[in-house]
Simulated scan of single mutants.
Amino acid sequence: MTEHTPEHTTRTTGQTAGRTSITLGGDLRTGRVGYGAMRLTGTHLWGEYPDRDSGITLLREAVEAGVTLIDTADVYGPHTNELLIREALHPYPEDLVIATKGGFVRGGVDLSSIDAVGNANYLRQSAQLSARRLGVERIDLYYLHSGWAQDASFEDQVGTLAELRRQGVIRHIGLSNVTTEQLRAARGITEIAAVTAHFNVVDRHETALLDATVEAGAVFVPWQPVSLTRPGTPTDTDGPEAVRRLLGPIAARHGATVSQIALAWLLSRSPAVMPIPGTTSIKHVQENLAAQDLELTPEEIRSITDLTPEK
């Protein structure tokens, strides 16, 4: 993750060439499928990943396999995820983009202890410390991790990130856990390169945000993109096994896994969609990357889209 230029190109592997590439912020070229590193932490995202050596090996093998974007956050651990990435990959390959986030704090192992903080001093400190932990002078993509902090207005939070961008601490700004209205407000303040949200074949509650992101010329980054559990309805008739029965025949026709079909469907939504599946298995990393080369038929895309209402 050294200094990038608009002329920079990614590896010319099957994973990142041609239609399987995407551009962040107008100048960062990466593959269509990134890697979400959140699972490389302890239980409930607290503390070190239990098998540090295997975590380091996984990150190195993932980059070797063709991953060109890794997504993390300062609250993962907290801090341990960013430090693990640095230990595994620094000095970073020229074509590797690392995205991180700031704006959440944790009071302990209980996930209910997570809260949003957005005042300028805290966000400035968070970005500077993330850069230090990652071992970079400038963070390629820095997300505001939450749009619902109470200690500063949303507009002021985005303004702080815009200031950090002008100062050279971050290269591009992203948004996480925001509404379509907040996206529009943020665009009135500064350029937004990416928006990340929960979106997959069974959870479409952020469809309007996806559409607004694409319309804005930014990249939409679905997290948990291969989840098959419908929110609030993990029943026998409406749960993951039922979804698998619907996607299974499509996967069989392509010689693929159900997860690969779920990713291929996401990629078909727009050239501006870049899923970031997380896994602790290099085999799954390789399968996720291979999903970039799958081409679903219009009928298959339509049948998957009809699985759940668009919202």
Results as ranks from 00 to 15, higher is better:
residue 74 D to R: 11
residue 78 P to T: 11
residue 78 P to N: 08
residue 79 H to P: 00
residue 79 H to T: 15
residue 83 L to K: 14
residue 84 L to P: 01
residue 87 E to F: 07
residue 88 A to W: 04
residue 90 H to K: 13
residue 90 H to R: 14
residue 92 Y to P: 04
residue 95 D to A: 10
residue 95 D to H: 12
residue 99 A to L: 07
residue 101 K to P: 05
residue 101 K to E: 03
residue 102 G to Q: 05
residue 103 G to C: 05
residue 105 V to H: 00
residue 106 R to W: 05
residue 107 G to T: 01
residue 108 G to H: 02
residue 111 L to C: 03
residue 112 S to I: 08
residue 113 S to H: 04
residue 115 D to V: 15
residue 116 A to H: 03
residue 117 V to L: 01
residue 119 N to K: 11
residue 119 N to W: 01
residue 120 A to D: 12
residue 123 L to D: 00
residue 126 S to Y: 10
residue 127 A to L: 06
residue 129 L to F: 13
residue 132 R to L: 15
residue 133 R to H: 14
residue 133 R to L: 09
residue 134 L to A: 12
residue 135 G to E: 05
residue 139 I to L: 15
residue 142 Y to R: 03
residue 144 L to S: 03
residue 145 H to T: 07
residue 145 H to L: 09
residue 147 G to R: 00
residue 148 W to M: 12
residue 154 F to I: 03
residue 154 F to M: 03
residue 155 E to W: 11
residue 156 D to G: 09
residue 163 E to V: 12
residue 166 R to S: 13
residue 166 R to F: 07
residue 167 Q to E: 15
residue 168 G to A: 10
residue 170 I to S: 04
residue 171 R to L: 13
residue 173 I to K: 03
residue 173 I to F: 08
residue 173 I to V: 13
residue 174 G to F: 02
residue 178 V to C: 08
residue 180 T to V: 15
residue 182 Q to Y: 04
residue 183 L to H: 08
residue 185 A to E: 15
residue 185 A to H: 10
residue 185 A to C: 10
